[in-house]
Design a binder for these strands. Structure first.
Length: 203
DNA sequence: GGTGTGATCGTA
DNA sequence: ACGATCACACCA
């Protein structure tokens, strides 16, 4: 098996599995956007899994609303929400329709389109800061609420497998920035990766 | 390197 | 009233 192969777009069946299978499998996959600003490519290195009604920290915990409706739809779609009065965050919907699971994309390594990312994030940032954090990632890729519901299987944004395997043993910690369900180690990172966000010595 | 605080507004 | 956050100030 070669280290990097011709990138293959992930299909519906990849996303249709349980969120706790999909989340670690998204590590080292390529997040690709083909917009008016050219092609943006980044390797995902940090994610968080959010369950449905069974997960008190999930936006879906209280049932369906106008905001989180995409979570309750078909897997393989983008769930983009607005938070803290100024930021957007990007999720991938997983599991069977109606289970309302999603994986939050928290950090990635910028690989292509860095000039556009710097334009959106500010030229003063170092490359390693461009996609370090969920709102930064959303900003660099130009994603907002108008992108909520986009289909990752077909369309201008997708996730690709270029042959780089997910880490054998991903770093696991509690999820960042939430107050509930802190016992669940549902944040997954590529080990020893400098592009991950948040506190480094987190359990 | 680290920690603390203010910004800012949609959602329930 | 409260966020699935960030930038910047300040200290070390």
């Amino acid at each position: 098996m070669s280290d990097t192969a011709r990138p293959e777009r992930l299909g519906r069946s990849f996303y249709a599995r349980d969120v706790h299978q999909v989340a670690p499998d998204l590590l080292n996959k390529l997040f690709v956007s083909r917009g008016s600003g050219g092609e943006l490519v980044a390797r995902i290195v940090e994610v968080e899994a959010y369950g449905g009604s069974d997960d008190p920290a999930s936006h879906a915990a209280g049932g369906m609303t106008a905001r989180n409706a995409t979570m309750f739809g078909a897997p393989g779609h983008l769930y983009v929400y607005f938070t803290y009065g100024m930021h957007y965050c990007v999720n991938v919907v997983t599991g069977a329709r109606g289970t309302a699971q999603a994986v939050l994309l928290r950090a990635a390594v910028p690989l292509a389109g860095l000039d556009v990312m710097r334009l959106r994030r500010g030229a003063q940032h170092r490359d390693r800061e461009l996609l370090r954090g969920p709102a930064r990632l959303a900003r660099a890729f130009g994603l907002d609420r108008t992108c909520d519901g986009l289909d990752l299987v077909r369309g201008r944004i997708g996730i690709f497998d270029d042959g780089v395997a997910p880490p054998h043993a991903p770093t696991r910690t509690r999820r960042i920035g939430i107050s509930r369900a802190q016992a669940n180690p549902w944040r997954c990172c590529v080990p020893d990766e400098i592009h991950v966000s948040g506190l480094r010595n987190l359990r």
